[in-house]
Design a protein around this nucleic acid. Structure first.
Lengths: 169, 169
DNA sequence: GGGCCGGTGAAATTGATTCTCAAATTCAAC
DNA sequence: GTTGAATTTGAGAATCAATTTCACCGGCCC
């Protein structure tokens, strides 16, 4: 059922998704992680994880909540927030903070570190990796005596399609 | 979780500030910009601009508000928010969104583009420039057909002092 | 010497996220 | 299967930064 087509999920991915996880694998991994620390597996968590890993791209909690509620309308927002936090803690999903004020999550199973190109017009998000840039970042950090644990590199601009669509402006 | 205590303003700058603006110059520049579009110069705006350019580092509105209220306790938060938005629109200040959930502003007069190293322990913010990284970013963008208008590069980790302070952990 | 207009500041609002708490669920041990 | 302790759930309240609203201000121009 296409519910009201609110904010379109940021379209992503130019080539076939490099995501290496099936929903089933993710559920299994999460339940292992949960069992290890005395937490409990629940139907809701499974459903949320299943939905998240069955989708692609960079989902906000809101977007994910809509998808989840298509399958079970009684699931509350708080549960989705809590579940995504657990997914992030367990390393199965990565939270991203782009500049729209919402936290977005992306699948993190079997994925390399990568950075993002973000179209400010259509909100497409394209991922890229660049080893040289990483090396230079490390170099800069060392020059300042810094020990870097993570970084954020985001390039904002117009994607090819949007450039063609709106020549100027 | 969020320490309620007045988080100290992130200390910045390892060498002498490269900021190239005096408060007076900034006031003048802003008033020109304001006059050009039929807005009005006000005592409050001057005071806020003066305070902002008289300080260094990356100030949150909250921190700036405190400083401003030391000089005139009747100035309201809304005015500081509005004034900083005007400063940003006029190009005299740059808004930055680091990962503490608040917008921080830095002086932008006579400054080059630069990126940031951020200590996750003491919240120091160090600025750096690296031409090679910029070039590589442009290259990556071109390879994806992107027209980049701005970017964000932030390296998070431990500064030298904090590494010494907490050898492990 | 009254309008006109933008500016001001206190309070209310918004929007994302987190917290609270009673009720429901999970799960290991009977 | 049943029990019971511990955890999870979901609705609504609370938070927090940021924005908006709105009634009052204060110059400036006829």
């Amino acid at each position: 059922m296409t519910t009201r087509s609110q904010t379109p999920a940021p379209r992503a991915r130019v080539r076939p998704p490099p995501d290496a996880a099936t929903p089933a694998e993710a559920r299994t991994r999460l339940n292992e992680w949960i069992a290890e620390r005395g937490l409990k597996a629940t139907r809701q968590r499974d459903l949320i994880v299943d939905t998240f890993f069955g989708a692609t791209g960079h989902l906000s909690v809101d977007e994910l909540l809509s998808k989840v509620q298509e399958r079970d309308e009684n699931i509350g927002a708080a549960t989705v927030y809590r579940t995504m936090k657990i997914l992030a803690d367990s390393g199965l999903a990565s939270p991203r903070h782009f500049e729209d004020g919402q936290t977005r999550y992306e699948a993190a199973i079997g994925r390399h570190h990568h950075d993002h190109l973000i179209c400010t017009s259509c909100h497409a998000i394209i991922e890229f990796e660049n080893e040289r840039i990483e090396e230079l970042q490390d170099l800069v950090a060392r020059q300042h005596g810094f020990l870097v644990t993570r970084h954020k590199l985001e390039l904002y601009g117009l994607c090819k399609a949007c450039q063609a669509r709106q020549p100027k402006r």
